[in-house]
Protein backbone atom coordinates (compact mmCIF):
# COMPACT_ATOMS: atom_id res chain seq x y z
CA UNK A 1 0.00 0.00 0.00
CA UNK A 2 1.30 3.44 -0.82
CA UNK A 3 2.20 6.02 1.76
CA UNK A 4 -0.64 8.15 0.53
CA UNK A 5 -3.24 5.50 1.14
CA UNK A 6 -2.00 4.68 4.64
CA UNK A 7 -2.05 8.32 5.70
CA UNK A 8 -5.74 8.21 6.42
CA UNK A 9 -7.06 11.43 7.86
CA UNK A 10 -10.33 11.78 9.71
CA UNK A 11 -12.75 11.81 6.82
CA UNK A 12 -15.69 14.14 7.04
CA UNK A 13 -17.94 11.67 5.21
CA UNK A 14 -17.17 8.76 7.57
CA UNK A 15 -19.54 8.71 10.53
CA UNK A 16 -17.50 6.15 12.45
CA UNK A 17 -13.76 6.43 12.01
CA UNK A 18 -11.40 3.61 12.93
CA UNK A 19 -9.77 4.10 16.31
CA UNK A 20 -6.51 2.68 17.62
CA UNK A 21 -6.68 2.42 21.41
CA UNK A 22 -3.22 2.28 22.98
CA UNK A 23 -3.31 1.38 26.66
CA UNK A 24 -1.21 -1.04 28.69
CA UNK A 25 -3.76 -1.58 31.47
CA UNK A 26 -5.76 -4.45 30.04
CA UNK A 27 -9.04 -3.84 31.83
CA UNK A 28 -9.06 -0.12 31.01
CA UNK A 29 -8.31 -0.94 27.39
CA UNK A 30 -11.05 -3.56 27.19
CA UNK A 31 -13.66 -1.26 28.68
CA UNK A 32 -13.01 1.71 26.40
CA UNK A 33 -12.51 -0.45 23.30
CA UNK A 34 -15.74 -2.30 24.00
CA UNK A 35 -17.66 0.91 24.58
CA UNK A 36 -16.41 2.44 21.33
CA UNK A 37 -17.36 -0.72 19.41
CA UNK A 38 -20.83 -0.60 20.94
CA UNK A 39 -21.05 3.00 19.68
CA UNK A 40 -20.29 1.79 16.16
CA UNK A 41 -16.59 2.54 15.85
CA UNK A 42 -14.15 0.00 14.47
CA UNK A 43 -11.45 -0.37 17.09
CA UNK A 44 -7.98 -1.86 17.10
CA UNK A 45 -6.02 -2.36 20.30
CA UNK A 46 -2.35 -1.99 21.18
CA UNK A 47 -0.66 -2.39 24.54
CA UNK A 48 2.39 -0.23 23.86
CA UNK A 49 3.81 2.41 21.55
CA UNK A 50 5.75 -0.26 19.70
CA UNK A 51 2.60 -2.29 19.05
CA UNK A 52 0.79 0.86 17.95
CA UNK A 53 3.44 1.57 15.33
CA UNK A 54 3.28 -2.04 14.13
CA UNK A 55 -0.45 -1.61 13.53
CA UNK A 56 -0.06 1.82 11.96
CA UNK A 57 2.47 0.36 9.52
CA UNK A 58 0.40 -2.72 8.71
CA UNK A 59 -0.86 -2.47 5.14
CA UNK A 60 -4.09 -4.26 5.97
CA UNK A 61 -5.12 -1.74 8.62
CA UNK A 62 -6.29 1.85 8.25
CA UNK A 63 -6.49 4.02 11.33
CA UNK A 64 -8.17 7.43 11.55
CA UNK A 65 -7.60 8.35 15.21
CA UNK A 66 -5.03 7.20 17.77
CA UNK A 67 -6.29 7.31 21.35
CA UNK A 68 -3.27 6.69 23.56
CA UNK A 69 -2.29 6.67 27.17
CA UNK A 70 0.83 8.72 27.94
CA UNK A 71 2.37 6.47 30.57
CA UNK A 72 3.27 3.12 29.06
CA UNK A 73 6.03 0.59 29.64
CA UNK A 74 8.75 0.16 27.08
CA UNK A 75 10.89 2.61 25.22
CA UNK A 76 8.01 4.59 23.71
CA UNK A 77 5.49 6.49 25.79
CA UNK A 78 2.43 8.31 24.46
CA UNK A 79 4.38 11.47 23.71
CA UNK A 80 6.94 9.57 21.68
CA UNK A 81 4.13 7.84 19.82
CA UNK A 82 2.48 11.19 19.07
CA UNK A 83 5.79 12.50 17.75
CA UNK A 84 6.17 9.41 15.57
CA UNK A 85 2.67 9.90 14.20
CA UNK A 86 3.33 13.57 13.49
CA UNK A 87 6.53 12.67 11.61
CA UNK A 88 5.28 9.60 9.76
CA UNK A 89 1.51 9.89 9.48
CA UNK A 90 0.80 13.61 9.18
CA UNK A 91 -2.90 14.32 9.36
CA UNK A 92 -3.66 11.38 11.62
CA UNK A 93 -5.38 12.63 14.76
CA UNK A 94 -3.95 11.77 18.17
CA UNK A 95 -5.78 12.03 21.48
CA UNK A 96 -3.59 11.56 24.54
CA UNK A 97 -4.76 10.67 28.02
CA UNK A 98 -2.88 10.77 31.30
CA UNK A 99 -3.34 10.70 35.02
CA UNK A 100 -0.38 13.04 35.48
CA UNK A 101 -1.17 16.74 35.56
CA UNK A 102 2.13 18.00 34.14
CA UNK A 103 1.60 16.03 30.96
CA UNK A 104 -0.99 18.53 29.76
CA UNK A 105 1.42 21.17 28.51
CA UNK A 106 3.50 18.69 26.51
CA UNK A 107 0.38 17.11 25.05
CA UNK A 108 -0.90 20.48 23.89
CA UNK A 109 2.15 20.85 21.65
CA UNK A 110 1.72 17.40 20.10
CA UNK A 111 -2.01 16.99 19.52
CA UNK A 112 -4.25 18.90 17.23
CA UNK A 113 -7.11 16.95 18.74
CA UNK A 114 -7.55 19.23 21.72
CA UNK A 115 -6.14 19.12 25.21
CA UNK A 116 -5.04 16.02 27.06
CA UNK A 117 -7.83 13.90 28.52
CA UNK A 118 -7.37 13.46 32.22
CA UNK A 119 -7.58 10.02 33.74
CA UNK A 120 -9.87 8.70 34.94
CA UNK A 121 -12.07 9.59 31.97
CA UNK A 122 -15.56 8.42 31.23
CA UNK A 123 -16.11 6.40 28.09
CA UNK A 124 -18.68 8.95 26.95
CA UNK A 125 -16.07 11.72 27.21
CA UNK A 126 -13.96 9.84 24.68
CA UNK A 127 -16.90 9.51 22.30
CA UNK A 128 -17.65 13.22 22.72
CA UNK A 129 -14.05 14.04 21.81
CA UNK A 130 -14.23 11.82 18.74
CA UNK A 131 -17.44 13.51 17.66
CA UNK A 132 -15.81 16.92 18.09
CA UNK A 133 -13.00 15.74 15.81
CA UNK A 134 -15.48 14.55 13.20
CA UNK A 135 -17.34 17.86 13.37
CA UNK A 136 -14.08 19.73 12.98
CA UNK A 137 -13.20 17.60 9.96
CA UNK A 138 -16.59 18.37 8.37
CA UNK A 139 -16.04 22.12 8.83
CA UNK A 140 -12.57 22.13 7.28
Amino acid sequence: MSTTSTNVTLRADTPFPTILVVEDEVLIRLVIADYLRDCGYKVHEAVSGEEAIAILQAPEVSIDVVFSDVEMPGSMDGFALARWVRANKPGLEVILTSGIERSADIAATLCEAGPLMKKPYSSQDVVDRLRQLAAKARRS
Partner: peptide, 18 residues
Protein backbone atom coordinates in the same frame (compact mmCIF):
# COMPACT_ATOMS: atom_id res chain seq x y z
CA UNK B 1 2.21 -10.62 18.00
CA UNK B 2 -0.11 -7.65 17.65
CA UNK B 3 -0.77 -8.15 13.94
CA UNK B 4 -1.79 -11.78 14.39
CA UNK B 5 -3.93 -10.83 17.40
CA UNK B 6 -5.56 -8.08 15.40
CA UNK B 7 -6.30 -10.31 12.39
CA UNK B 8 -7.75 -13.15 14.46
CA UNK B 9 -9.83 -10.80 16.61
CA UNK B 10 -11.21 -8.96 13.60
CA UNK B 11 -12.18 -12.22 11.90
CA UNK B 12 -14.06 -13.36 15.00
CA UNK B 13 -15.75 -9.98 15.51
CA UNK B 14 -16.98 -10.17 11.94
CA UNK B 15 -19.10 -13.12 13.14
CA UNK B 16 -20.43 -11.05 16.05
CA UNK B 17 -18.43 -12.78 18.73
CA UNK B 18 -17.50 -10.56 21.65
Amino acid sequence: DVRIRCLVSDALRALDFK
